[in-house]
Design a protein around this nucleic acid. Sequence first.
DNA 1: CTAACTGCAAAACTTTTGCATTAGT
DNA 2: ACTAATGCAAAAGTTTTGCAGTTAG
Lengths: 136, 136
Amino acid sequence: MDQDFNQLLEKHRLSNTNARKSVFAIFIKNQKPLSMRDLIAACKDIDRVTVYRIVDVFEKIGVLQRIQQGWKYKLELGDTFKKHHHHITCISCGAQEEFDEPEWLDNEVAAISKKHQFSIQQHSFELRGLCRNCRK
Amino acid sequence: MDQDFNQLLEKHRLSNTNARKSVFAIFIKNQKPLSMRDLIAACKDIDRVTVYRIVDVFEKIGVLQRIQQGWKYKLELGDTFKKHHHHITCISCGAQEEFDEPEWLDNEVAAISKKHQFSIQQHSFELRGLCRNCRK
DNA sequence: CTAACTGCAAAACTTTTGCATTAGT
DNA sequence: ACTAATGCAAAAGTTTTGCAGTTAG
């Protein structure tokens, strides 16, 4: 895990600073999507601006990815560190569960990209509704 | 179109005010997703706060829906006024095209919601990559 | 008429920018 | 030592809140 992280930084000629190590460690520790607010709160010794800049870099090199929860975003580890998956979110209580990539999805993405002549780099497939507890 | 709109307001006991008519008209006229910023600019006689409040109400009753473009959102007409569809967006130039709901998608959503015991109310399936012009 | 809606002022929150200082290799 | 990264201050942008005044039914 840490090796992958270090190699990723090296590969992009980026320094392995304390601030970057801390941010990465927070995601490894939490193992769940965090909002920017959560993250800034967890980075109590790192300046808010630095957190934004680290997130920016981490997204570019694939350490982190943004996912949608409602119309806000959250951050979680990228596919290098966490198996590709999607989310199902409760509108009422915010509970979030993960599900695997459906099998047909890659084919469908390929078909659509061919039809529209796009080269696809990312896709999102997110569900929202009421969880078992909140539907009662 | 306008009838549907009026009926939707009536159904929810909401007044058909000038501000609401204007906002609806803007989306009918533009026929494409607008950012909040675009919308506020287009509503030059309506206070910014009122626009936010109208969007809020419109989302709740299904006149509008939010979609993701990158990690910002845009607003467009809900399924009552526009056939359900998804978007493919160019990361480089922002160009956006629509595609129809893939056939298997409903089944898949049903299967996942059953497995996780959620009652699903919304789903999003968005693609991002480079368009024909930008991939050159 | 009166409840619902809007405008205005202000606050809260989020994100970006520029520059001086510090830390990594 | 030299460059990249960080912290700080400040600005820009977005969204929310409270309240007084206005409008639709």
